[in-house]
Design a protein around this nucleic acid. Structure first.
Lengths: 207, 207
DNA sequence: GTCTATACGGCGATAGAC
DNA sequence: GTCTATCGCCGTATAGAC
Protein backbone atom coordinates (compact mmCIF):
# COMPACT_ATOMS: atom_id res chain seq x y z
CA UNK A 1 0.00 0.00 0.00
CA UNK A 2 1.36 3.34 -1.11
CA UNK A 3 1.82 5.97 1.60
CA UNK A 4 -0.90 8.60 1.61
CA UNK A 5 1.28 11.51 0.53
CA UNK A 6 3.98 11.36 -2.08
CA UNK A 7 7.14 13.40 -1.65
CA UNK A 8 5.86 15.98 -4.12
CA UNK A 9 2.59 16.22 -2.24
CA UNK A 10 4.18 16.82 1.14
CA UNK A 11 6.39 19.47 -0.37
CA UNK A 12 3.40 21.14 -1.96
CA UNK A 13 1.63 21.03 1.39
CA UNK A 14 4.64 22.59 3.10
CA UNK A 15 4.70 25.33 0.50
CA UNK A 16 1.02 26.03 1.02
CA UNK A 17 1.41 26.15 4.79
CA UNK A 18 4.37 28.49 4.46
CA UNK A 19 2.45 30.76 2.11
CA UNK A 20 -0.48 30.92 4.52
CA UNK A 21 1.80 31.73 7.42
CA UNK A 22 3.57 34.31 5.27
CA UNK A 23 0.28 36.01 4.46
CA UNK A 24 -0.63 36.26 8.12
CA UNK A 25 2.80 37.41 9.21
CA UNK A 26 3.40 39.90 6.42
CA UNK A 27 -0.04 41.36 7.05
CA UNK A 28 0.67 41.73 10.76
CA UNK A 29 4.27 42.94 10.64
CA UNK A 30 4.86 44.13 7.10
CA UNK A 31 7.45 42.85 4.64
CA UNK A 32 10.45 44.35 6.39
CA UNK A 33 9.13 43.80 9.88
CA UNK A 34 8.34 40.13 9.44
CA UNK A 35 11.28 37.77 9.90
CA UNK A 36 11.68 34.53 8.03
CA UNK A 37 12.06 32.70 11.31
CA UNK A 38 8.74 34.11 12.46
CA UNK A 39 7.04 32.97 9.27
CA UNK A 40 8.58 29.53 9.37
CA UNK A 41 7.56 29.00 12.99
CA UNK A 42 4.03 30.22 12.30
CA UNK A 43 3.82 27.49 9.68
CA UNK A 44 5.38 24.92 12.04
CA UNK A 45 8.72 24.66 10.28
CA UNK A 46 12.24 25.98 10.58
CA UNK A 47 14.01 28.59 8.53
CA UNK A 48 15.91 25.83 6.75
CA UNK A 49 12.68 24.32 5.49
CA UNK A 50 11.54 27.72 4.31
CA UNK A 51 14.73 28.31 2.36
CA UNK A 52 14.37 24.84 0.89
CA UNK A 53 11.05 25.94 -0.63
CA UNK A 54 11.74 29.59 -1.43
CA UNK A 55 15.01 31.10 -2.54
CA UNK A 56 14.64 34.23 -0.41
CA UNK A 57 12.28 36.31 1.68
CA UNK A 58 11.46 38.38 -1.38
CA UNK A 59 10.73 35.32 -3.50
CA UNK A 60 8.26 34.15 -0.85
CA UNK A 61 6.62 37.56 -0.83
CA UNK A 62 6.26 37.65 -4.62
CA UNK A 63 5.00 34.09 -4.72
CA UNK A 64 2.34 35.20 -2.26
CA UNK A 65 1.35 38.02 -4.59
CA UNK A 66 0.76 35.59 -7.45
CA UNK A 67 -0.95 33.14 -5.17
CA UNK A 68 -3.47 35.61 -3.81
CA UNK A 69 -4.15 36.79 -7.32
CA UNK A 70 -5.56 33.38 -8.17
CA UNK A 71 -7.65 33.37 -4.99
CA UNK A 72 -9.20 36.70 -5.76
CA UNK A 73 -10.05 35.64 -9.28
CA UNK A 74 -11.81 32.57 -7.95
CA UNK A 75 -13.74 34.65 -5.42
CA UNK A 76 -14.83 37.14 -8.05
CA UNK A 77 -15.89 34.36 -10.40
CA UNK A 78 -17.88 32.81 -7.59
CA UNK A 79 -19.57 36.11 -6.81
CA UNK A 80 -20.52 36.41 -10.47
CA UNK A 81 -21.87 32.87 -10.62
CA UNK A 82 -23.81 33.18 -7.40
CA UNK A 83 -25.80 36.17 -8.53
CA UNK A 84 -25.59 36.09 -12.28
CA UNK A 85 -25.31 39.04 -14.58
CA UNK A 86 -28.22 41.39 -15.11
CA UNK A 87 -30.25 40.23 -12.15
CA UNK A 88 -30.11 43.69 -10.66
CA UNK A 89 -28.37 42.37 -7.61
CA UNK A 90 -24.94 43.40 -8.85
CA UNK A 91 -24.80 46.63 -6.87
CA UNK A 92 -26.00 44.95 -3.70
CA UNK A 93 -23.43 42.22 -4.18
CA UNK A 94 -20.65 44.77 -4.54
CA UNK A 95 -21.79 46.45 -1.33
CA UNK A 96 -21.72 43.16 0.54
CA UNK A 97 -18.26 42.47 -0.85
CA UNK A 98 -16.94 45.67 0.70
CA UNK A 99 -18.22 44.95 4.16
CA UNK A 100 -16.93 41.40 4.00
CA UNK A 101 -13.46 42.48 2.99
CA UNK A 102 -13.31 45.42 5.34
CA UNK A 103 -14.45 43.58 8.44
CA UNK A 104 -13.79 39.88 7.99
CA UNK A 105 -10.66 39.54 5.89
CA UNK A 106 -8.67 42.02 7.89
CA UNK A 107 -5.46 40.78 6.32
CA UNK A 108 -6.51 41.65 2.80
CA UNK A 109 -6.18 45.42 2.92
CA UNK A 110 -2.89 45.30 4.81
CA UNK A 111 -1.40 42.86 2.32
CA UNK A 112 -2.56 44.98 -0.60
CA UNK A 113 -0.92 48.02 0.96
CA UNK A 114 2.28 46.05 1.51
CA UNK A 115 2.31 44.87 -2.10
CA UNK A 116 1.69 48.39 -3.34
CA UNK A 117 4.44 49.92 -1.23
CA UNK A 118 6.86 47.20 -2.20
CA UNK A 119 6.08 47.70 -5.89
CA UNK A 120 6.52 51.47 -5.89
CA UNK A 121 9.87 50.96 -4.13
CA UNK A 122 10.98 48.12 -6.40
CA UNK A 123 9.89 49.08 -9.90
CA UNK A 124 10.80 45.69 -11.33
CA UNK A 125 7.93 44.27 -9.25
CA UNK A 126 5.39 46.79 -10.45
CA UNK A 127 4.60 44.77 -13.56
CA UNK A 128 3.58 41.80 -11.47
CA UNK A 129 1.35 43.96 -9.29
CA UNK A 130 -0.17 45.60 -12.36
CA UNK A 131 -0.94 42.20 -13.82
CA UNK A 132 -2.54 41.11 -10.57
CA UNK A 133 -4.70 44.19 -10.34
CA UNK A 134 -5.61 43.98 -14.02
CA UNK A 135 -6.97 40.48 -13.56
CA UNK A 136 -9.00 41.50 -10.55
CA UNK A 137 -10.42 44.42 -12.47
CA UNK A 138 -11.43 42.18 -15.34
CA UNK A 139 -13.55 40.20 -12.93
CA UNK A 140 -14.96 43.41 -11.53
CA UNK A 141 -15.85 44.60 -15.01
CA UNK A 142 -18.26 41.70 -15.24
CA UNK A 143 -20.19 42.95 -12.22
CA UNK A 144 -19.98 46.58 -13.27
CA UNK A 145 -21.10 45.76 -16.79
CA UNK A 146 -24.08 43.90 -15.37
CA UNK A 147 -25.00 46.81 -13.13
CA UNK A 148 -24.76 49.26 -16.01
CA UNK A 149 -26.79 47.06 -18.34
CA UNK A 150 -29.45 46.63 -15.69
CA UNK A 151 -29.86 50.37 -15.37
CA UNK A 152 -30.01 51.01 -19.08
CA UNK A 153 -26.47 51.20 -20.32
CA UNK A 154 -25.42 54.53 -21.75
CA UNK A 155 -23.24 54.33 -24.84
CA UNK A 156 -20.49 56.86 -24.27
CA UNK A 157 -19.31 55.42 -20.99
CA UNK A 158 -16.67 52.71 -21.02
CA UNK A 159 -16.85 49.90 -18.50
CA UNK A 160 -13.12 50.07 -17.76
CA UNK A 161 -13.36 53.61 -16.44
CA UNK A 162 -16.36 52.88 -14.28
CA UNK A 163 -14.69 49.75 -12.94
CA UNK A 164 -11.58 51.72 -12.07
CA UNK A 165 -13.72 54.22 -10.18
CA UNK A 166 -15.58 51.46 -8.35
CA UNK A 167 -12.32 49.75 -7.40
CA UNK A 168 -10.88 53.03 -6.18
CA UNK A 169 -13.97 53.67 -4.09
CA UNK A 170 -13.67 50.19 -2.69
CA UNK A 171 -10.04 50.56 -1.66
CA UNK A 172 -10.54 54.02 -0.21
CA UNK A 173 -13.61 53.11 1.80
CA UNK A 174 -12.07 49.94 3.22
CA UNK A 175 -9.09 51.96 4.36
CA UNK A 176 -11.21 54.71 5.86
CA UNK A 177 -13.49 52.21 7.59
CA UNK A 178 -10.47 50.89 9.47
CA UNK A 179 -9.63 54.36 10.66
CA UNK A 180 -13.11 55.46 11.62
CA UNK A 181 -15.91 52.90 11.22
CA UNK A 182 -18.52 55.49 12.21
CA UNK A 183 -17.75 57.52 9.10
CA UNK A 184 -18.12 54.56 6.74
CA UNK A 185 -21.40 52.81 7.42
CA UNK A 186 -22.12 49.42 5.92
CA UNK A 187 -24.53 51.10 3.54
CA UNK A 188 -22.24 53.88 2.33
CA UNK A 189 -20.58 51.85 -0.40
CA UNK A 190 -23.93 50.81 -1.83
CA UNK A 191 -25.11 54.40 -1.51
CA UNK A 192 -22.05 55.68 -3.35
CA UNK A 193 -22.55 53.09 -6.09
CA UNK A 194 -26.16 54.18 -6.49
CA UNK A 195 -25.10 57.80 -6.81
CA UNK A 196 -22.43 56.81 -9.28
CA UNK A 197 -24.59 54.68 -11.56
CA UNK A 198 -27.46 57.15 -11.35
CA UNK A 199 -25.09 59.93 -12.32
CA UNK A 200 -23.69 57.95 -15.24
CA UNK A 201 -27.15 57.49 -16.69
CA UNK A 202 -28.16 61.09 -16.08
CA UNK A 203 -24.96 62.40 -17.61
CA UNK A 204 -25.38 60.24 -20.71
CA UNK A 205 -28.99 61.32 -21.11
CA UNK A 206 -27.76 64.88 -21.35
CA UNK A 207 -24.96 64.15 -23.82
CA UNK B 1 25.76 92.17 18.19
CA UNK B 2 23.58 89.16 18.90
CA UNK B 3 24.25 86.09 16.79
CA UNK B 4 21.68 85.49 14.11
CA UNK B 5 20.24 82.30 15.51
CA UNK B 6 19.51 81.68 19.14
CA UNK B 7 20.01 78.27 20.61
CA UNK B 8 16.30 77.55 20.47
CA UNK B 9 16.21 78.59 16.83
CA UNK B 10 19.05 76.33 15.75
CA UNK B 11 17.44 73.45 17.57
CA UNK B 12 14.12 74.16 15.89
CA UNK B 13 15.90 74.26 12.55
CA UNK B 14 17.59 70.94 13.27
CA UNK B 15 14.24 69.45 14.18
CA UNK B 16 12.69 70.70 10.96
CA UNK B 17 15.57 69.33 8.88
CA UNK B 18 15.31 65.99 10.61
CA UNK B 19 11.55 65.86 10.04
CA UNK B 20 12.02 66.62 6.34
CA UNK B 21 14.67 63.95 6.01
CA UNK B 22 12.45 61.54 7.91
CA UNK B 23 9.56 62.18 5.52
CA UNK B 24 11.75 61.43 2.51
CA UNK B 25 13.37 58.38 4.05
CA UNK B 26 10.23 56.85 5.53
CA UNK B 27 8.47 57.33 2.19
CA UNK B 28 11.32 55.63 0.32
CA UNK B 29 12.07 52.77 2.70
CA UNK B 30 9.09 52.51 5.01
CA UNK B 31 9.03 52.84 8.77
CA UNK B 32 10.77 49.55 9.50
CA UNK B 33 13.08 49.71 6.51
CA UNK B 34 14.39 53.18 7.21
CA UNK B 35 17.21 53.38 9.75
CA UNK B 36 17.73 56.28 12.10
CA UNK B 37 21.29 56.64 10.86
CA UNK B 38 19.99 56.95 7.30
CA UNK B 39 17.54 59.66 8.35
CA UNK B 40 20.11 61.56 10.36
CA UNK B 41 22.62 61.52 7.52
CA UNK B 42 19.99 62.62 5.01
CA UNK B 43 19.45 65.64 7.25
CA UNK B 44 23.20 66.20 7.62
CA UNK B 45 23.45 65.10 11.26
CA UNK B 46 24.42 62.08 13.27
CA UNK B 47 22.25 59.62 15.14
CA UNK B 48 23.22 61.28 18.39
CA UNK B 49 21.76 64.58 17.21
CA UNK B 50 18.60 62.81 16.18
CA UNK B 51 18.16 61.17 19.57
CA UNK B 52 18.80 64.52 21.17
CA UNK B 53 15.72 65.86 19.38
CA UNK B 54 13.47 62.81 19.37
CA UNK B 55 13.20 60.16 22.04
CA UNK B 56 12.93 57.28 19.59
CA UNK B 57 12.36 56.30 15.99
CA UNK B 58 8.67 55.92 16.71
CA UNK B 59 8.44 59.35 18.33
CA UNK B 60 9.98 60.86 15.21
CA UNK B 61 7.49 59.01 13.04
CA UNK B 62 4.51 60.17 15.10
CA UNK B 63 5.80 63.73 15.20
CA UNK B 64 5.91 63.57 11.42
CA UNK B 65 2.28 62.50 11.36
CA UNK B 66 1.23 65.56 13.37
CA UNK B 67 3.50 67.80 11.36
CA UNK B 68 2.13 66.78 7.99
CA UNK B 69 -1.38 67.18 9.33
CA UNK B 70 -0.77 70.89 9.77
CA UNK B 71 0.70 71.11 6.26
CA UNK B 72 -2.31 69.50 4.68
CA UNK B 73 -4.69 71.78 6.53
CA UNK B 74 -2.83 74.81 5.26
CA UNK B 75 -2.89 73.49 1.69
CA UNK B 76 -6.62 72.82 1.84
CA UNK B 77 -7.29 76.27 3.28
CA UNK B 78 -5.22 77.78 0.50
CA UNK B 79 -7.14 75.85 -2.12
CA UNK B 80 -10.38 77.12 -0.62
CA UNK B 81 -9.15 80.71 -0.53
CA UNK B 82 -7.80 80.62 -4.05
CA UNK B 83 -11.05 79.59 -5.63
CA UNK B 84 -13.69 80.56 -3.12
CA UNK B 85 -16.80 78.63 -2.34
CA UNK B 86 -19.68 78.51 -4.79
CA UNK B 87 -17.75 79.68 -7.81
CA UNK B 88 -18.47 76.42 -9.56
CA UNK B 89 -14.78 75.69 -9.81
CA UNK B 90 -14.76 73.40 -6.81
CA UNK B 91 -14.99 70.18 -8.80
CA UNK B 92 -12.28 71.27 -11.19
CA UNK B 93 -10.09 72.23 -8.26
CA UNK B 94 -10.54 68.83 -6.68
CA UNK B 95 -9.56 67.20 -9.96
CA UNK B 96 -6.39 69.27 -10.16
CA UNK B 97 -5.59 68.38 -6.57
CA UNK B 98 -5.61 64.69 -7.43
CA UNK B 99 -3.22 64.99 -10.34
CA UNK B 100 -0.90 67.19 -8.30
CA UNK B 101 -0.75 64.77 -5.44
CA UNK B 102 -0.56 61.68 -7.60
CA UNK B 103 2.24 62.90 -9.84
CA UNK B 104 4.17 65.61 -8.05
CA UNK B 105 4.12 64.81 -4.37
CA UNK B 106 5.11 61.21 -4.84
CA UNK B 107 5.98 60.90 -1.18
CA UNK B 108 2.50 61.75 0.00
CA UNK B 109 0.71 58.53 -0.87
CA UNK B 110 3.54 56.34 0.41
CA UNK B 111 3.63 58.17 3.73
CA UNK B 112 -0.12 57.91 4.09
CA UNK B 113 0.08 54.17 3.50
CA UNK B 114 2.87 53.88 6.06
CA UNK B 115 0.86 55.82 8.64
CA UNK B 116 -2.19 53.67 7.98
CA UNK B 117 -0.28 50.40 8.26
CA UNK B 118 1.46 51.56 11.41
CA UNK B 119 -1.84 52.59 12.97
CA UNK B 120 -3.67 49.34 12.26
CA UNK B 121 -0.70 47.48 13.77
CA UNK B 122 -0.39 49.78 16.78
CA UNK B 123 -3.93 50.55 17.89
CA UNK B 124 -2.79 53.17 20.37
CA UNK B 125 -1.70 55.27 17.37
CA UNK B 126 -5.00 54.92 15.56
CA UNK B 127 -6.55 57.82 17.45
CA UNK B 128 -3.85 60.17 16.23
CA UNK B 129 -4.35 59.03 12.65
CA UNK B 130 -8.11 59.37 12.98
CA UNK B 131 -7.69 62.92 14.25
CA UNK B 132 -5.38 63.75 11.36
CA UNK B 133 -7.78 62.37 8.79
CA UNK B 134 -10.74 64.03 10.45
CA UNK B 135 -9.11 67.43 10.14
CA UNK B 136 -8.30 66.86 6.50
CA UNK B 137 -11.86 65.82 5.86
CA UNK B 138 -13.20 68.93 7.51
CA UNK B 139 -11.27 71.00 5.01
CA UNK B 140 -12.55 68.78 2.20
CA UNK B 141 -16.10 69.27 3.38
CA UNK B 142 -15.75 72.94 2.56
CA UNK B 143 -15.01 72.15 -1.08
CA UNK B 144 -17.63 69.42 -1.29
CA UNK B 145 -20.25 71.62 0.31
CA UNK B 146 -19.47 74.33 -2.24
CA UNK B 147 -19.78 71.87 -5.12
CA UNK B 148 -23.08 70.56 -3.80
CA UNK B 149 -24.48 74.05 -3.24
CA UNK B 150 -23.41 75.09 -6.73
CA UNK B 151 -25.36 72.22 -8.24
CA UNK B 152 -28.48 72.83 -6.22
CA UNK B 153 -28.00 71.15 -2.92
CA UNK B 154 -30.37 68.32 -2.18
CA UNK B 155 -31.60 68.18 1.39
CA UNK B 156 -31.40 64.52 2.39
CA UNK B 157 -27.70 64.12 1.60
CA UNK B 158 -25.18 64.88 4.29
CA UNK B 159 -21.91 66.52 3.37
CA UNK B 160 -19.88 64.21 5.59
CA UNK B 161 -20.91 61.13 3.65
CA UNK B 162 -20.19 62.71 0.29
CA UNK B 163 -16.84 63.95 1.54
CA UNK B 164 -15.95 60.48 2.73
CA UNK B 165 -16.79 59.10 -0.68
CA UNK B 166 -14.76 61.80 -2.42
CA UNK B 167 -11.78 61.17 -0.16
CA UNK B 168 -12.03 57.42 -0.75
CA UNK B 169 -12.14 57.99 -4.49
CA UNK B 170 -9.11 60.22 -4.18
CA UNK B 171 -7.04 57.71 -2.25
CA UNK B 172 -8.03 54.82 -4.46
CA UNK B 173 -7.37 56.61 -7.72
CA UNK B 174 -3.99 57.93 -6.59
CA UNK B 175 -2.96 54.42 -5.69
CA UNK B 176 -4.23 52.94 -8.93
CA UNK B 177 -2.60 55.68 -10.98
CA UNK B 178 0.76 54.62 -9.58
CA UNK B 179 0.16 51.06 -10.65
CA UNK B 180 -1.19 51.78 -14.11
CA UNK B 181 -1.32 55.43 -15.20
CA UNK B 182 -3.06 54.48 -18.45
CA UNK B 183 -6.11 53.29 -16.51
CA UNK B 184 -6.41 56.52 -14.51
CA UNK B 185 -6.35 59.48 -16.86
CA UNK B 186 -5.96 62.98 -15.53
CA UNK B 187 -9.62 63.58 -16.28
CA UNK B 188 -11.02 60.48 -14.63
CA UNK B 189 -11.24 61.96 -11.15
CA UNK B 190 -13.13 64.97 -12.44
CA UNK B 191 -15.32 62.65 -14.48
CA UNK B 192 -16.06 60.51 -11.45
CA UNK B 193 -16.90 63.60 -9.41
CA UNK B 194 -19.29 64.73 -12.09
CA UNK B 195 -21.01 61.36 -12.12
CA UNK B 196 -21.18 61.43 -8.35
CA UNK B 197 -22.64 64.90 -7.95
CA UNK B 198 -25.00 64.40 -10.86
CA UNK B 199 -26.19 61.17 -9.27
CA UNK B 200 -26.68 62.82 -5.91
CA UNK B 201 -28.95 65.43 -7.40
CA UNK B 202 -30.86 62.93 -9.51
CA UNK B 203 -31.34 60.60 -6.56
CA UNK B 204 -32.60 63.42 -4.35
CA UNK B 205 -35.00 64.61 -7.06
CA UNK B 206 -36.56 61.17 -7.01
CA UNK B 207 -36.76 60.93 -3.21
C1' DG C 1 23.43 70.24 21.29
C1' DT C 2 26.06 67.52 18.49
C1' DC C 3 29.56 63.94 17.45
C1' DT C 4 32.15 59.42 17.88
C1' DA C 5 32.26 54.98 19.55
C1' DT C 6 30.10 51.11 21.13
C1' DA C 7 26.92 47.83 23.51
C1' DC C 8 23.56 44.59 22.51
C1' DG C 9 20.21 42.13 20.00
C1' DG C 10 18.05 40.40 15.87
C1' DC C 11 18.14 39.60 11.06
C1' DG C 12 18.82 36.98 6.40
C1' DA C 13 21.08 33.42 4.64
C1' DT C 14 24.12 29.22 4.68
C1' DA C 15 26.37 24.66 6.08
C1' DG C 16 26.18 20.21 7.37
C1' DA C 17 23.84 16.42 10.02
C1' DC C 18 20.08 13.26 9.44
C1' DG D 1 13.41 17.88 2.64
C1' DT D 2 13.86 19.36 7.06
C1' DC D 3 16.42 20.63 11.29
C1' DT D 4 20.17 22.70 14.20
C1' DA D 5 23.83 25.70 14.55
C1' DT D 6 26.18 29.52 13.10
C1' DC D 7 28.26 33.38 10.34
C1' DG D 8 28.32 38.09 9.25
C1' DC D 9 25.90 42.17 9.07
C1' DC D 10 23.02 45.94 10.41
C1' DG D 11 19.63 47.69 13.49
C1' DT D 12 18.33 50.82 17.77
C1' DA D 13 19.76 53.10 21.45
C1' DT D 14 23.23 54.83 24.78
C1' DA D 15 27.65 56.86 26.93
C1' DG D 16 30.93 60.07 27.17
C1' DA D 17 33.97 63.58 24.79
C1' DC D 18 33.72 68.27 23.18
Amino acid sequence: MRRRLTRAETKARTRALLLDAAARTFARKGFTGASVEEIAEAAGFSTGALYSNFSSKEALFLELLSDRRRDRLAAAAQALDAHGAGTGEAVAELGRLLVDVADKDIEFAALQAEFWLYAIRNPRVMDALAASVRESHQALEGLVGAAMARRGAPDGVCVEEVSTVVAALFIGLVRQRRIDPDCVSEELFGQALNWLFTGINAASDEG
